[in-house]
């Protein structure tokens, strides 16, 4: 067993900070391991995350804690119907003293951005954010500014209040690498949350990893070995969303309006590598693909009206696909 030893050893040393990061985040956040893992996947794969969950599930705290643990700048933007792109990106301000326009940068110039309730702002603000996410640069007036790395946007959506919202179009949803659904904590976790919040001891999250280490880890993630069999497995899954009559999945064909894009295949492969890295492994196994599959695909599959009428979710369709596609 020698072939993979080198890459495994490299991953072992490079991913040492992952446990430290988890421990540090655990000081402020109880449970929500799924969410913190996905935050790391987004961070390591240079992707952005759309979080969906009811209020009060520590979404803001999670990204704030992550920013503190990495010693990075953090901004929180509350999206409202009257928000303007300039409020987000920045604007030109006239300086009377100097008699010239100067640039005032907006809150997007941070490493970690929490775009809270992104669907409450009109399309032009959403577009401004998503463009910045994609291009990693912002133009104000005639000057273009590159956004500082690492740059991670965590947008949140509230699944219960849909009145007065501007749902994100499918094309923009596709730009989020992961769509994570956060559930309530368990009883034990919630007890620990109560105790932690009522305690007089205030725990300070200390920086345990530098931005440079994260950037280096990003490169290492891409070196994680992915066998052809795994690539085929990823393609089988993604293609099943488009040609669902394969693998005996004819029954879900009428439920799918449109399948996942090639961006889904890319992101599924990259997220699988990142997950293997978090698990401190130098190669991808089918478990890694399955672990991130729901988060990668759930916002990339369009349901038909028929499926919506029958309350069938994309998660149910992904489950069916995973149960039908043969594991290598």
């Amino acid at each position: 067993m020698t072939d993979i030893r080198e890459i495994n050893e490299k991953i072992q040393s490079e991913s040492a900070f992952v446990e430290l990061l988890h421990m540090e985040m655990g000081k402020a956040i109880v449970g929500q391991r799924h969410m913190t893992d996905r935050l790391l996947i987004g961070l390591l794969s240079n992707g952005h995350i759309l979080l969906e969950g009811v209020p009060g599930l520590a979404k803001t705290l999670a990204i704030k804690t992550l920013a503190s643990a990495i010693h990075a700048k953090f901004s929180r933007i509350q999206f409202t119907p009257d928000l303007l792109p300039a409020d987000l990106l920045g604007t030109m301000v006239y300086n009377q003293k100097r008699e010239e326009f100067t640039v005032r940068k907006g809150p997007i110039f941070s490493n970690f951005i929490l775009a809270d309730e992104i669907n409450r702002a009109p399309a032009k603000v959403q577009s401004a954010l998503l463009e910045a996410m994609q291009e990693k640069q912002v133009t104000i007036g005639d000057q273009t500014f590159h956004l500082e790395e690492p740059f991670l946007v965590l947008a949140t959506q509230n699944p219960v209040e849909q009145e007065g919202t501007y749902p994100l179009p499918e094309a923009q949803l596709d730009r989020f690498m992961l769509k994570v659904i956060i559930d309530y904590p368990s009883k034990e976790e919630e007890r620990a949350i109560i105790r932690q919040n009522l305690s007089l001891d205030s725990t300070q999250v200390q920086p345990v990893v530098s931005s440079n280490e994260i950037l280096r880890a990003r490169k290492t993630v891409r070196e994680v070995y992915m066998d052809e069999k795994i690539e085929k497995y990823i393609l089988d899954i993604v293609f099943s969303t488009r040609q669902s009559d394969q693998n005996g999945l004819g029954n879900i064909r009428r439920m799918i309006n449109y399948g996942a894009s090639p961006r889904a295949s890319i992101n599924l492969a990259l997220a699988s590598k990142a997950y293997a890295f978090i698990k401190r492994r130098g190669y991808v196994i089918p478990e890694d693909v399955r672990a991130v599959c729901f988060d990668i695909l759930r916002h990339r599959i369009g349901l038909t009206y028929e499926a919506e009428a029958e309350n069938i979710t994309t998660d149910a369709i992904i489950s069916q696909i995973l149960n039908a596609v043969e594991v290598p």
Partner: peptide
């Protein structure tokens, strides 16, 4: 088998 199949392992 996973090691052999997915990590070029040689048992």
């Amino acid at each position: 088998a996973d090691m052999v199949k997915f990590a070029k392992g040689i048992p």
